[in-house]
């Protein structure tokens, strides 16, 4: 089975757990930075495969976000664009609250973000 997705993430746990297994593009930065990167990829013709606001931990309460996009590029997908734009608008409502968090809390946020993206793997690998 050809793995045809790329995971964009700012979560070091996702980077490390998937190393050598899936295609992961890791870049440090905040929650909003990651969403903007996803939007850039959508502009470039990648399709969004997972919801950018996955998880009930609110944007900017957690610093971490991982989003799956298609490896292939085509013409810009308007559905993907609409979802990522709405996500960016929603994210702006939430002030950044993750600065200065203790390491243990950061690690728990990493774990939850990892399980959210990990829940998409069986679906993404199904066909």
């Amino acid at each position: 089975m050809a793995v045809s997705f790329v995971i964009l993430t700012n979560n070091p746990l996702v980077r490390d757990r998937y190393a050598g297994q899936y295609s992961v593009e890791y870049q440090e930065g905040g929650y909003m930075d990651l969403l903007v990167r996803v939007r850039d990829k959508v502009h470039a013709g990648h399709k969004l495969l997972t919801h950018p606001l996955s998880g009930s931990v609110k944007p900017n309460e957690t610093p971490y976000k991982s989003v799956m996009i298609s490896q292939k590029r085509g013409t810009m997908d308007l559905g993907s664009l609409s979802v990522i734009e709405e996500a960016i608008t929603a994210c702006r409502k939430f002030p950044v609250r993750y600065e200065g968090l203790p390491q243990r809390v950061l690690e728990d946020f990493q774990l939850v973000d990892f399980t959210l993206i990990d829940s998409a793997i069986p679906s993404a690998s199904a066909f």
């Binding site: 996955s54 998880g55 009930s56 774990l111 939850v112 399980t115 959210l116 993206i117 990990d118 829940s119």
Partner: peptide, 8 residues
């Protein structure tokens, strides 16, 4: 139904 991952 909520169905997203650990704690979700």
């Amino acid at each position: 139904l909520q169905s997203q991952g650990l704690l979700h």
